[in-house]
Design a protein around this nucleic acid. Sequence first.
DNA 1: ATGCATGAGCT
DNA 2: GCTCATGCATA
Length: 339
Amino acid sequence: MMSMNSKQPHFAMHPTLPEHKYPSLHSSSEAIRRACLPTPPNLFASLDETLLARAEALAAVDIAVSQGKSHPFKPDATYHTMNSVPCTSTSTVPLAHHHHHHHHHQALEPGDLLDQVSSPSLALMAGAVVEDCWAARRTLTGTCTAWGHLSHPAAAAAHEHAVRASPAVVGAAGLASICDSDTDPRELEAFAERFKQRRIKLGVTQADVGSALANLKIPGVGSLSQSTICRFESLTLSHNNMIALKPILQAWLEEAEGAQREKMNKPELFNGGEKKRKRTSIAAPEKRSLEAYFAVQPRPSSEKIAAIAEKLDLKKNVVRVWFCNQRQKQKRMKFSATY
DNA sequence: ATGCATGAGCT
DNA sequence: GCTCATGCATA
């Protein structure tokens, strides 16, 4: 039996299709989603003293800095270096992109922040409504009508995007039309697990799946990385991302199982070496400070980011990206409050 | 499996 | 400059 092939160094991406990126009408689902995320009724109770102390310490610095604004910040001389390889050429999945919404508070001081964050009311209510939608849909699993009477334009829009997410894929794969079952978190979770199980049974690694996707020749679908396959299986992707990837992975699975029945699989990879990129590693103490600040203000202004960066002796860009990634993390299925 | 990063698309 | 989908590098 072929045991898990060891992973390839990396896979070649095929810029084959100049692919359009997903279209995206924007709704305010972002605001709603954000509202129902981690908004504990009593922030004070959930933040331990250490965190608050750190956050406050940082905030203090930020105030001092903004007043005596004497230092320019480090020009974020980032060190990536994907020379000739346009690393993002990976043909994309016609995903559903969506929403954005303005952010209300940004240039607030720590005090204001706490006040604001600790105020339950609106945000929580919005979150409750959204959760209800999903909960309702879950109980209606099996039908395609749940979204029909959604009262939230944002949610409706999200669904619309999900539906038109990958028409070609769906058609080519001969999969059922994307209905409620395809957006149901429970179904998604179940599929992810089935997928992993069957994938392992086929003796294929996550990396193999990723590169094999390109062989499916589905318009607009190229290869994916081991990371993405892994995240799909572990549900550490956004809900919409899961919805978009499901049909594709399902198509691959059926294809692979069918192909194995007759012969053997025939993957195809190769690669050339380029300059390596170095990964910044934020030390534990700094990370703790960032987390503390994030708990109080997940969306610091550019100025605050600069201040924090200086305080922690990190590049501003590193700090900015850290916050971006942190925000994304919150939205992953596994940690989503709507789930 | 996950941390830090890039780039597209949008505001 | 943000969000989102994704990826390389690494623990």
